[in-house]
Structure formats: structure tokens, C-alpha cells
Amino acid sequence: NMTTNERRVIVPADPTLWSTDHVRQWLEWAVKEYGLPDVNILLFQNIDGKELCKMTKDDFQRLTPSYNADILLSHLHYLRE
């Protein structure tokens, strides 16, 4: 019986294949993992993996503070390698 913190996010390895639900799961995981403040996951609700991967730093900064944008982008970049 796992707690929420221990729950593994199971999403496709390639972020471009993510559904909007996968994006939400990834964001929820990242918020907990990195202790990100002020991430409004609802702002990302219509973004799927293909859109997420096209987003620039400016795009991320429209949805979340700069600090969060940096961490989310670097993790996304890591996943795409």
C-alpha cells in the first residue's frame, strides 16, 4: 500500500507521446520531487506532450515562475535525451 509520495509516475518514455493526463501526472510528480512552489497545474490542463515539447522557456514562464520553468524544462530535456 503505497503513499502518494512513493507512487511511481508511469508515462511513456517519449514525452512527445504524452496525453494531457500524462502531462498532469508529470507535473504533480515534479512539484513533489523538486518542491516547486506556485505551480498551477490547471494552467497546463490542455497541453499534451507534443505541445509541451514545443514550449519555449518564455512559454513556460507565462504559466509558472521562472525558477519552476527552469527545473521543468531541464527535466523535460533530460527525458528527451
Results as ranks from 00 to 15, higher is better:
N1K: 07
N1V: 05
M2C: 06
M2G: 03
M2N: 10
M2D: 05
M2F: 09
T3F: 11
T3A: 10
T3C: 08
T4N: 10
T4W: 12
N5I: 13
N5P: 08
N5E: 14
N5Q: 10
N5Y: 07
E6Q: 12
E6Y: 08
R7P: 13
R7V: 09
R7H: 07
R7S: 09
R7M: 13
R8T: 11
R8H: 07
R8W: 00
V9N: 14
V9W: 13
V9Y: 09
V9L: 14
I10D: 15
I10F: 09
I10G: 15
I10P: 15
I10Q: 15
V11Q: 11
V11T: 15
V11M: 14
V11G: 13
V11N: 14
P12H: 03
P12R: 04
P12Q: 05
P12I: 00
A13F: 08
A13K: 09
A13E: 15
D14V: 01
D14A: 01
P15T: 02
P15Y: 04
P15G: 01
P15Q: 02
T16H: 15
T16M: 12
T16D: 07
L17C: 13
W18V: 00
W18E: 00
S19T: 08
S19E: 06
S19K: 09
T20F: 05
T20I: 07
D21Q: 08
D21W: 06
D21R: 09
H22I: 02
H22V: 05
H22N: 14
V23I: 02
V23M: 00
R24W: 02
R24T: 14
R24E: 05
Q25S: 09
Q25Y: 08
Q25H: 09
W26Y: 12
W26H: 00
W26I: 00
L27I: 08
L27K: 02
L27P: 02
L27N: 00
E28N: 12
E28K: 10
E28Q: 09
E28M: 11
W29Y: 12
A30G: 05
V31K: 14
V31A: 09
V31D: 02
K32S: 07
E33Q: 12
E33T: 06
E33M: 07
Y34M: 07
Y34T: 03
Y34P: 02
Y34V: 03
Y34A: 05
L36G: 02
L36Y: 03
P37A: 12
D38N: 11
D38F: 02
D38K: 08
V39F: 13
V39A: 05
N40E: 13
N40H: 04
N40I: 03
N40A: 05
I41N: 06
I41C: 10
I41D: 06
L42D: 09
L42V: 10
L42M: 12
L42G: 13
L43E: 10
L43F: 07
F44Y: 08
Q45E: 13
Q45H: 14
Q45W: 04
Q45F: 04
N46R: 07
N46D: 12
N46F: 06
N46P: 04
N46L: 04
I47R: 02
I47N: 02
I47D: 01
I47W: 02
I47M: 10
D48A: 06
D48S: 09
D48E: 08
D48K: 07
D48N: 12
G49W: 00
K50Q: 11
L52N: 00
L52I: 07
L52V: 03
L52G: 01
C53Y: 02
C53A: 06
K54P: 00
K54A: 07
K54Q: 07
K54R: 09
M55S: 00
M55Q: 00
M55C: 04
M55W: 08
M55A: 01
T56P: 02
T56C: 11
T56I: 04
K57S: 11
K57H: 09
K57N: 04
D58W: 06
D58G: 08
D58K: 09
D58N: 05
D58L: 10
D59C: 13
D59V: 04
D59G: 05
D59Q: 10
D59W: 01
D59I: 02
D59A: 14
F60M: 15
F60P: 00
F60Y: 03
Q61I: 15
Q61K: 13
Q61L: 11
Q61A: 12
Q61F: 10
Q61V: 11
R62I: 13
R62Q: 14
R62P: 03
R62Y: 06
R62V: 09
R62A: 12
L63R: 06
L63G: 02
T64C: 08
T64G: 06
T64P: 02
T64H: 03
P65N: 04
P65A: 13
P65K: 07
P65S: 13
P65V: 11
S66D: 05
S66H: 07
S66V: 07
S66Q: 11
S66M: 04
S66K: 09
Y67H: 13
Y67I: 06
Y67W: 10
Y67T: 15
Y67N: 15
Y67A: 12
N68Q: 14
N68R: 04
A69S: 03
D70C: 02
D70V: 05
I71H: 12
I71N: 02
I71L: 07
I71E: 06
I71D: 03
L72K: 00
L72D: 00
L72G: 00
L73Q: 06
L73V: 10
L73M: 12
S74I: 03
S74W: 02
S74C: 07
H75V: 02
H75L: 03
H75R: 15
L76F: 02
H77V: 08
Y78E: 15
Y78K: 15
Y78N: 15
Y78S: 15
L79A: 11
L79K: 11
R80C: 15
R80A: 12
E81G: 15
E81R: 10
E81V: 06
E81L: 14
